[in-house]
Design a protein around this nucleic acid. Sequence first.
DNA 1: GTATACTAACTTGTATACAAGTATACTTGA
DNA 2: TCAAGTATACTTGTATACAAGTTAGTATAC
Lengths: 242, 242
Amino acid sequence: MVLDQERLYPEKWLVRASTGERIACEVRIQIIAGVIESGTVLSENKLANDFDVSRSPVREALKLLASENLVRLERMGAVVHALTEKHITEMYDVRILIETFVFERLVSQNVNPLIKELSKIVQMMKVAIDYSDADEFAHQDLLFHETIIQGIDHAYISMIWKNLRPIMESLILLSMRQRFRANVEDFSRVIENHQLYIDAINQKDRQLMNQSLHHNFDDVQQTIDQLWRTQQTLNKGEVTND
Amino acid sequence: MVLDQERLYPEKWLVRASTGERIACEVRIQIIAGVIESGTVLSENKLANDFDVSRSPVREALKLLASENLVRLERMGAVVHALTEKHITEMYDVRILIETFVFERLVSQNVNPLIKELSKIVQMMKVAIDYSDADEFAHQDLLFHETIIQGIDHAYISMIWKNLRPIMESLILLSMRQRFRANVEDFSRVIENHQLYIDAINQKDRQLMNQSLHHNFDDVQQTIDQLWRTQQTLNKGEVTND
DNA sequence: GTATACTAACTTGTATACAAGTATACTTGA
DNA sequence: TCAAGTATACTTGTATACAAGTTAGTATAC
């Protein structure tokens, strides 16, 4: 069931997006938030109706979501595959894998411009905290890791990130929104950890990098767990199956 | 320019494919083979005409190719980005990355069923050599690595493979065809190397794994280089730009 | 009551139509 | 000859139409 009266994805992130991308973003975040339950069968016509568009952009959206493993395109509709904790762990496997790879490459190049860019982003994150802007914080957080990855010029590492990015985005977005409501105080820890990243890259210190990578992972993993529980509690009251 | 009178992609691999996938496969291999030159602008209408279909499946195909970084979708057409040697090196970076990851996981599980499956595939490869079936050999080669990767149950490692697979397929296919024409004798080395893979997994020997991984890489890299030179020489005589 | 066959309402895949925007080439003016 | 403006022929994005196939439900025959 698509709750189109209550959009979860920030409108302002969609300024340059096509109709298909908009739909993909909204359906994606609703799947990840658990609003659309696992096992739900989405049909092109139904989605087209819900979003008041034709099947063409819906089709595009479903293809996108399928490439992200969020739905499986079958003969009669797209079956929703919600993220499990196993999936999230696996996503972070990949993130650690590629960020470690990127770090190894960064070690043998001039990282000064990158460090400067990353510092800027951390400052932005601080401002986002000050103004309690969860969405902006999530955006900067994502941008931070993206900037590191783009720090080396590597087409296929970029490709992996490009595929991971949308899900990460929704995940971080939802998690940050909840965190801003629940426990704002531990954002200092997030900032600290990002600073640790920067230090690791700047000092080209493998151990420090590993440490901050896993730190970050544990941190997010914990939040995700919380998100999961909250979401599931919420949904029990909210979701009325067709 | 699309030479549709001379299809490079094996028809029999397309039995279950949609029109869009067919077009993607054919255009992909023509880009990788250098038949469609880098910088060429492909328009949906033109491709639809060439393949005698409507724009819908062509659109689907172009989206696919864009996700593989083979074309870049711009306002006025899809610009072809041929593979450079750098790209191919980077692809093998990723392959080594994920296959190493997979190996580490395999170490802590029962690999007997996998070993059996891999042995079967190597036998198939031998038969393919005996009957000089380059396409079948390429297919089995690809299947070999795919089987290893599917040996661990990991959604996002699978995702990476799914994204890499089409390009690898074309690359290996072209390279094997040429190799069958030029130097059939060194296929025994390829077989040997695959046997080495199996041994490494079976004995859970990290060093052996690393060795065979890089062996395989060097081997293919070398072939690719040859392919490149041949293809470029060929194209100089063949390609007549509109 | 049960099983089988048929109908009707869905599904996707592909083709076509239409709208909005862009680049190029030609025409017209000086 | 050169410049500027307009017209035309492209491009993509979205909507709609049509065809082929699947599923489910109902009605009918036994």
